[in-house]
Nucleic acid binder design. Structure first.
Lengths: 311, 311
DNA sequence: CGCGATAGTTGACAAAATCAACTATTGGCA
DNA sequence: TGCCAATAGTTGATTTTGTCAACTATCGCG
């Protein structure tokens, strides 16, 4: 789709803005004996497995002759070692310990520059900015982002202080935005989360927090309902993380955990209109065993109880 | 706030990605007889009102000598005309019709490059990308904008969906980080917040959320303890917002509201070690009327009850 | 008036980048 | 097998880009 004039203008403004910003923080090579190009080459050397010269030239879109000279200078200074490979035209490059030492302050410089740039921002602003950067990369098909999405590159971990609040917060915001639930919904979630912590039994219960780029993108809980029945709760997937199969993965974790913990059955409570979640439950073998109309969260809803027999 | 490792890494990845992208679309000067620097200078000349050389040098962060030469070349080619101003040291620059003609294809090139880049994106992706770009620009906005924000200090508002979770989240994180409270602390906060929503009586109870730049920086609650006694709860000020007098302001709101609502007394419960909060209560006229040792949140604590008579 | 600051220019250089020619290999194919 | 186009990397020559410091002309101000 052809972008409108206003959009092209906005992009150009952003490009100008960001060109200056990147120039200002200069990849951290300012004050080091390396040029921007040199710093970028070192970065590639540090982050690749025995790359060839062409590989780096392609990655950085550098002239091969120019790169050759740069590499020769590095060799002369003892920063890189070469190993002949199968193909004797090309040689594989590798940072020597001295090279790593030379790169370290540069790397730190780049990190510090970013820290300085981010320091003044608050938690929300930081999170928003990171999300925005990710969105841009995704939009323009940055292969690494796309690949990381495709490979389901998120991590699951146990809960930590702050997580319950986060789960409550996001439930509140998302259910309000997407379905118009009022704040009593959030109160219910808060009660559930509080109970979870207060009665937490690590052998019989579990919570998974999904992260990507250090940002929480989803959650799921399983709690003991009775000796033989587990209850799945608080499945949440951030809008920006949908389509990765995260929801399914979280439910899988719950099923696996419940089996290992010796439960015979998993039940869950949801609303009929939450179709995305229902689809996941259905796919994982859950059956809807009861429906009930009710008025909650400022809406007329149909509650559903689903169950999955583990035997 | 210091960004986490994951965040710095994400920013670096974005910078690398965007450096390449900007390089690739090269401001549209590719295929034109202008260098990147030349093109940028032309752009500034085209979009400013009779700028001086220094103005452009500052805007583009170019060396004045270098710029001087670039401008001389443009003059020689008839692209710019100079007019002496009041101050005879500086002269005002202006694109001649020939200069405009020379700039036109360049400008078109830049636009086309962006159109090509955006073309494959659908409406939603485009909108999201533009929003993301704006978010980034805002986040790193001009120092002037930031300064003006700082002068606006903060705004107070009533609670909305998502706020309870936020309050819980930040209590959990901050008490953990600053005092080492474990997650049962967060659970308690969650219970309090849930109760607040569930029993909310707007005539007798209130919640204030403090915002700055659309970001929550503090909270306070007042709830009914009895007909005559109000209870102050969940006073929180973000570390980044400390020193603005926000804590005092929030307590003032509570006192004012409680008087208006006809309470005779305000009480609150806190821990002896939370000195910053204690200082505020003391300053506002509260007295500590009871102390009690207890073990909670994974720590040995001394709980205190404070009260303020409103009569 | 005189002095320090500002705008802009210039020369001398250094660094960065480009281009094209060149060697040494490789892989494919008749 | 031997030939040839393609690939990886190197090198020389050159241009472009950027930096530094010195210099002129003007301004603002006590």
């Amino acid at each position: 789709m052809r972008p409108s004039k206003a959009r092209t203008a906005a992009v150009r403004a952003f490009n100008r803005f960001y060109t200056r910003r990147i120039g200002a923080l200069g990849e951290g090579h300012l004050g080091s004996p390396f040029s921007l190009a040199g710093a970028r080459v070192l970065y590639e050397l540090a982050h690749r497995e025995r790359p060839t010269a062409s590989e780096i030239a392609d990655a950085l879109e550098l002239d091969r002759g120019y790169l050759s000279r740069t590499l020769r200078a590095f060799k002369k200074r003892g920063f890189i070692a070469t190993e002949a490979g199968e193909d004797r035209r090309r040689s594989h490059l590798r940072l020597t310990p001295a090279g790593k030492r030379a790169f370290a302050p540069l790397d730190r410089g780049a990190r510090d520059a970013i820290i300085t740039m981010f320091q003044p921002l608050g938690e929300t602003a930081q999170r928003r900015t990171i999300a925005a950067m990710r969105a841009i990369r995704e939009a323009f098909g940055d292969p690494t982002v796309v690949a990381s999405n495709r490979r389901n590159l998120f991590t699951l971990r146990a809960h930590r202080p702050g997580d319950m609040g986060w789960v409550i917060h996001r439930h509140g915001v998302l259910y309000f935005q997407e379905w118009g639930y009022d704040e009593t919904m959030e109160a219910l979630i808060a009660t559930i989360a509080a109970e979870f912590i207060q009665n937490f039994n690590p052998v019989r219960e579990c919570c998974w927090i999904a992260e990507r780029d250090g940002e929480i993108i989803g959650s799921i809980f399983v709690v003991e309902k009775s000796k033989t029945v587990a209850k799945l709760r608080l499945l949440l997937v951030e809008p920006t993380a949908r389509g990765l199969g995260l929801g399914g993965r979280l439910v899988d974790e719950v099923i696996q955990f419940s089996k290992k913990a010796g439960y015979k059955k998993i039940v869950l409570w949801t609303q009929s209109e939450l179709t995305a979640a229902r689809a996941i439950y259905e796919k994982k073998g859950f059956n809807c065993i009861a429906e009930e109309k009710h008025h909650s969260f400022g809406k007329d809803l149909v509650a559903e109880t689903w169950e999955l027999c583990l035997t």
